[in-house]
């Protein structure tokens, strides 16, 4: 059930990337896809009754959740922000050149 909802979120982002014709909407769709992936990783690593993977005094033998997906996602979040910033900067430059975010008009004004 939870996996299915994650996939649904991913599909909504994919729908935005496929159907929308505004550059900012496409960037929003990509961000939503990123969020869905992070969520999927965090859901896969969860363990029933587990605690956060941080050892404190007196809890050395506690049940921890899987730290590996968390470590993978941790770096990916920051990379996602950098990629979003790169896309936004490209979109701003395209807007300065063509005066619109509509990708159909951008194609026509080539050259």
């Amino acid at each position: 059930m939870i996996y299915l909802l994650c996939v649904l979120l991913l599909l909504i982002g994919l729908y935005g990337v496929l159907v929308k014709k505004n550059l900012i909407k496409i960037i929003i769709g990509l961000s939503i896809m990123e969020y869905a992936l992070f969520l999927f990783f965090a859901v896969i690593g969860y363990r029933e009754g587990g605690t956060a993977p941080i050892i404190t005094k007196g809890f050395e033998k506690a049940v921890f959740v899987d730290p590996l997906p968390q470590a993978l996602v941790l770096t990916a979040i920051v990379i996602g922000l950098a990629v979003t910033a790169l896309l936004v900067s490209l979109a701003v430059r395209i807007y300065e050149k063509h005066g619109t975010f509509d990708i159909r008009k951008i194609r026509r004004l080539k050259g």
């Binding site: 920051v78 922000l81 950098a82 910033a85 936004v88 900067s89 701003v92």
Partner: peptide, 18 residues
């Protein structure tokens, strides 16, 4: 590295004139 990188992104966007 991360702090300087994100600040550089912001400052390049902020000085753009729109």
């Amino acid at each position: 590295e991360v702090g300087a990188a994100l600040f550089a992104i912001f400052i390049t966007l902020a000085v753009l004139k729109g």
